[in-house]
Design a protein around this nucleic acid. Sequence first.
DNA 1: ACACCATGTCAAAAATATTATACATTAATA
DNA 2: TATTAATGTATAATATTTTTGACATGGTGT
Lengths: 72, 72
Amino acid sequence: MGKSPNISNQIRSLRFHHEEMTQQQLADLVGVTRQTINAIEHNKYSPSLEVAFKIAVAFNKPLTEVFQYEAH
Amino acid sequence: MGKSPNISNQIRSLRFHHEEMTQQQLADLVGVTRQTINAIEHNKYSPSLEVAFKIAVAFNKPLTEVFQYEAH
DNA sequence: ACACCATGTCAAAAATATTATACATTAATA
DNA sequence: TATTAATGTATAATATTTTTGACATGGTGT
């Protein structure tokens, strides 16, 4: 659904809370490419639910702590 | 990410808990088609995070109560 | 200065999600 | 019987996400 201004995320800050985990390292944990992590981090589009869940697992956080939704 | 055996959901039972809300009615609330709801309900693929959030909002539940992830 | 690493970004291709149309089945109902 | 509503499918077309490959930048270290 294209650009998603109504979804935000804490990926960047979570990465730095995790011993400065790099975009590449997170991508490897999740099983996607570095560009995908970068795009999601910058809200270029809303990821699939599966990728979102995998990111949450990588940080050992519930999904809703990584991604927030604000209806408009 | 194609078929998603590691994501399950409670959409069907939530629909019936909501005055027997129909697939079409949920689709209208969410802004997708009936076929999309049907496919998601049957785990044919994992929806976008945005659609997942909208479904959760339609049921007035946190996303993680509607969708569950089980890493394998 | 040079190399290295993390990041931002871009464009084209591949993969996946979603729509649109259509048709079959079942249950309810007039 | 006939009709209507809800659902399960199916296929092709469109939209979106993800990959791949590439290049540029700023920072850090040698």
